[in-house]
Each structure stands twice: as structure tokens, then as C-alpha cells.
Design a protein around this nucleic acid. Structure first.
Length: 194
DNA sequence: CCGGTGATGCCCT
DNA sequence: GGGCATCACCGGT
């Protein structure tokens, strides 16, 4: 399959638009000569003035990247053992991002299995921390400009594919629960659990 | 299949 | 010291 760069302004739209736009795109990590690739099937939008967002109370050391330019990575550490990957959206200093919640394994599946310590393909990347384990994404990958051609992690597009998008409330949060800011590809088997 | 629960470390107040 | 944008495992059904 041929993968191409996404448009220059891809991340500079409203966060909801980007969250939907990321569905069907490809998360690519380059490790030496190998490409680890997953098709994005589930995302969540985190907006400013959203009590569920890390940026809600303003900039801190932890969330600083959320206020960086669109297309930056914001990787945070949580529950003492997991990482989650976000992509900064909208404009610099706004404080919005999209969480990558699930991807469909495409390539580098042995790598993913090794890093997840799991053999079951269905369970490899159907959750935000699972995606990071499978792709070996850690704090080291915080503050990476995904738009740079030299970035080891990038978002790319493939051939056109058609699918329906479902919007629901978000998962695993206590505040801001009512907002329908979770998006996924209908009927895809790699969606994270309800 | 389902729900409940413990793990585990760091940031922020 | 509280609270996590989670996950694996366990036991019941």
C-alpha cells in the first residue's frame, strides 16, 4: 500500500474535525528500516474549557505540549505504567488535542506482539495504552513534530476508503462525560471496550 | 461473556 | 495525599 503525507494544514482545523479526519488515516512509526503501521479506527477530542481535558486548568509541566503547535505529539504517562498518544490540533496556545484510542494492525505485527507480550491480534491495539505499547511509544516520543519528514512517528493517508463514523460519549473519564467527543469507524473490530 | 479490582508512579494542590 | 483520558486478571454465570 502506498502511504502519503497528510495535508499541511491537516491538524490546524477544529479539534472535532481532526478527530473525525484521523479515522482511516495511518499511524506510522519508523524503527530502523521497519515500518510499524496501524489504521486509526477510534479517537477522542479534548477541547479547551472541557473539564475532562488535561489542559482545562491551563498550562503545566505535564500538559505543556497541548499548547504547542498543531501536529505536535503529546504523550502522557498515567496509572503509574501506561502511556497515551495525543496529537495537538487547532492553533498554538489553544490547548486542544486528539487522543488515539485504537488502531487496526496493518504492518509490523510481530513487533507489536513482542512489545505487547500478547499473541492475540484482536487485543493488540484496541485501547490507547495498548497502541503505545504495541508501537513502543513512550515519554521519549513526547513533543515530536509529526509534520516533519524526519519525525519517527507520522500520520499518513492511504487510498480512499469509505466508512461511517459513529459519535458517542467518551470512555474512562469522570468529568465531562456527557460530551459526544468519541469517534470510531462503524463495525470495526478493533474498537476499544465499552 | 461479564463486572469488579488491584497494580503502580507521577503530577499537581 | 488524591486522583488519574488503563489494563490484565480473576471469579461468577
Amino acid at each position: 500500500m502506498e502511504l502519503k503525507e497528510v495535508d499541511k494544514k491537516f491538524f490546524e482545523k477544529s479539534t472535532i474535525q481532526v478527530a473525525k479526519g484521523l479515522l482511516g488515516k495511518y499511524l506510522v512509526k519508523e524503527i530502523g528500516r521497519n515500518l510499524i503501521v496501524g489504521r486509526i479506527v477510534e479517537t477522542e477530542a479534548y477541547l479547551k474549557d472541557d473539564p475532562a481535558s488535561h489542559s482545562y486548568k491551563g498550562k503545566t509541566r505535564r500538559n505543556a505540549q497541548m499548547f504547542n503547535i498543531p501536529g505536535m505529539s503529546y504523550v502522557y504517562f498515567t496509572y503509574g505504567m501506561y502511556h497515551c498518544l495525543n496529537l495537538v490540533t487547532n492553533k498554538k496556545d489553544v490547548g486542544e488535542a486528539v487522543l488515539i484510542r485504537a488502531v487496526e494492525p496493518i504492518s509490523g505485527i510481530c513487533f507489536m506482539k513482542r512489545h505487547r507480550k500478547k499473541k492475540d491480534e484482536k487485543n493488540l491495539t484496541n485501547g490507547p495504552a495498548k497502541v503505545c505499547q504495541a508501537f513502543n511509544i513512550t515519554k521519549e516520543d513526547n513533543a515530536i513534530n509529526m509534520k516533519s519528514k524526519f519525525s519517527p512517528i507520522r500520520i499518513m493517508k492511504g487510498e480512499k476508503d469509505k466508512f461511517s463514523i459513529v459519535s458517542t460519549t467518551r470512555i474512562g473519564i469522570s468529568k465531562g462525560k456527557e460530551k459526544p467527543h468519541r469517534f470510531y469507524i462503524k463495525d470495526n473490530r478493533f474498537i476499544s471496550k465499552k
